[in-house]
Amino acid sequence: MAITSKPKPKAVEPIAADNAAAEAFIGGAPDASKAQPTRREAKKLISLKIAPTLLERVDQLAAELGQSRAAVINLAIHRAVERGLEIDGLGKA
């Protein structure tokens, strides 16, 4: 009996039509806008300090939505920029 190496799995290339369909689906979402970055535009890494109790609430919301912490924070920032932000009842900034 000969000893042979384990066969390497073949790389699967994504189908361009599937990618286009996925992009069209995502772009058709109600919260999609033309101002959102494309896949080619790199996101910037920032540092953010946040109160521990607020971070716990963000993590709870992320778990409820099945999203990451970063996704929830990004969505909140996006909505504030697009729809305005009310601060202590003083209207939208």
Rank of each mutant, 00 (worst) to 15 (best):
Q60R: 08
V72N: 00
G66M: 00
P30I: 01
P7T: 06
D18N: 06
A11P: 02
E82R: 10
K8A: 09
K92A: 11
A11G: 02
L75I: 08
F25Y: 11
A35I: 07
L48A: 07
F25P: 00
A32G: 01
I87W: 07
P14I: 04
E41T: 10
L90C: 02
E13R: 12
I46E: 00
L90S: 05
A2P: 12
R40Q: 15
A11W: 08
H78Y: 10
T4C: 07
N74L: 00
E56C: 06
D31M: 00
P14C: 03
A51H: 14
A80M: 14
H78F: 11
K49Y: 12
A29C: 09
M1G: 15
K49I: 10
R83T: 03
L45F: 05
V81G: 01
R79A: 15
V58M: 07
L54E: 10
K6Y: 06
L55T: 01
L65H: 04
E13Y: 11
M1V: 15
A32P: 02
T38H: 14
Q60G: 00
S33R: 04
I15N: 07
G27H: 03
L61W: 00
R39S: 06
Q36A: 11
A35N: 12
G28A: 14
K49P: 00
L55P: 01
I15H: 05
E64V: 06
A11S: 10
V81L: 13
L45R: 13
E13Q: 12
A70K: 06
T4V: 12
M1W: 09
P7I: 03
S68Q: 06
P14S: 02
L65I: 01
L75K: 10
E13L: 09
L85Y: 03
A70G: 07
A76M: 08
K34N: 07
A71C: 06
G66Y: 01
T38S: 14
A51F: 11
T53V: 13
E23W: 05
L90F: 09
G89S: 06
G84E: 01
I73A: 02
A20I: 08
A42L: 13
A42W: 05
L54S: 10
K49W: 12
A16H: 09
R83P: 01
S5F: 11
A2M: 09
R39I: 02
S5Y: 05
K92I: 06
L85R: 04
E23Y: 08
A63K: 15
P37A: 06
A29N: 08
S68A: 10
D59Q: 13
P14K: 05
V58H: 04
E41Q: 14
P7L: 09
A20Y: 03
I15V: 14
A35V: 13
Q36G: 04
D31W: 00
A17F: 06
A80S: 13
A76Q: 04
E82A: 08
A51Y: 14
G28K: 04
A2D: 11
L75N: 05
I3V: 14
A11F: 14
Q60N: 04
A80Q: 13
D59R: 14
I3F: 07
E64D: 14
I87C: 01
